[in-house]
């Protein structure tokens, strides 16, 4: 009994110390935000029902800057020249309809800087124009036209269940963030080179792209390889939902992904930064079972030896 009391005292002081240096210290050091479930409550809802066939004609307004590969529209510029012009390579819209939230997309087309939450950086009154211009309606019902475009983008995108974590990441994050451990650069996957010259040419292109991007964003967006360990799932989720929460005034735009796509983006970060997590869980279970058996035998041995001593 005395030993149990001692154990209780040791455990108590250990837990108090743990509480102070971990949960308590972190609660004091870091702001905490809860997710809104990617509802984008600040943006007005889409009132009109879109028609994909009409949207098909209207996207001609988009393909001046964006490629839509599935529809046969190549990007008008390569990634580096696009970054030289716009600061960042405009995304290919093939899967935009599934990666991004429907309401967000509609608002983005109507007013990019507002939907992206970068109005502090792009103020038309000061002549700071967002590189993506607002949509100018061809007819007089802008709401309807925007809804049509969104409907079209949704119709050409792959289905939600066909969207892999990697695809979601590449569309949503991959033009600004490299992921070294996933062999991903801002201008695409890094190929295997046989000749040093080809490799250096690629590196040069990448460095050029990164220079334009850094100028546009103020600083080069970080490599996300280890973000699942350095920031953790909750932080990443609430950060991409609204970057301004944690970093007031950051140049990082609100990405506008749907809740499902956000999950996939995080899944991808786990795949590159914590790829052994499944093995860890399986091995963990077996080791814990083994340690229990080990403890039982150790206790039995002690009882036997000490039977003669007491």
């Amino acid at each position: 009994m005395k030993e149990l009391l001692i154990l209780a005292v040791v455990t108590f002081f250990t837990l108090v110390t743990y509480y102070l240096v971990e949960p308590f210290a972190h609660s004091q050091m870091h702001k905490h935000f809860e997710s809104d479930g990617f509802a984008y409550k600040d943006l007005p809802a889409v009132t009109k029902k879109g028609d994909a066939s009409r949207g098909k004609d209207l996207v001609s307004a988009c393909i001046g800057c964006h490629g839509i590969e599935v529809a046969g529209f190549q990007a008008p510029m390569d990634a580096v020249s696009a970054a030289a012009t716009f600061g960042v390579n405009p995304p290919d819209l093939s899967n935009a309809g599934v990666v991004f939230d429907e309401k967000f997309l509609a608002n983005l087309i109507k007013n990019p800087a507002h939907a992206l939450m970068v109005e502090h950086k792009f103020d038309p009154a000061k002549g700071q124009m967002h590189p993506m211009s607002e949509y100018y309606a061809t007819g007089d019902d802008k709401e309807q036209e925007v809804a049509d475009i969104v409907a079209y983008l949704r119709s050409i995108a792959v289905k939600q269940e066909e969207l892999t974590p990697k695809m979601a990441f590449e569309t949503a994050c991959g033009r600004c963030h490299a992921v070294n451990y996933g062999n991903w650069t801002q201008i695409g996957e890094k190929p295997k080179f046989k000749k040093k010259q080809d490799e250096l040419a690629f590196e040069t292109q990448l460095l050029d792209y990164q220079d334009y991007l850094a100028k546009y964003m103020g600083t080069l967006p970080p490599d996300l390889s280890m973000y699942i360990r350095s920031r953790g799932e909750h932080y990443i989720e609430t950060f991409i939902e609204n970057p301004q929460n944690y970093l007031k005034g950051t140049a990082m735009p609100r990405v506008g992904v749907s809740a499902e796509s956000a999950e996939k983006v995080i899944e991808h970060l786990k795949d590159v930064g914590d790829s052994k997590r499944h093995e860890r869980e399986t091995v963990g279970k077996y080791v814990m079972i083994y340690m229990l058996i080990f403890a039982i035998f150790a206790i039995l041995w002690k009882k036997e030896v000490w039977r003669d001593l007491h």
Partner: peptide, 13 residues
């Protein structure tokens, strides 16, 4: 040693 091992086993869990 047998008592040590008992404590060690619980510690290892």
């Amino acid at each position: 040693m047998s008592k040590d091992m008992m404590v060690v086993s619980i510690y290892l869990i």
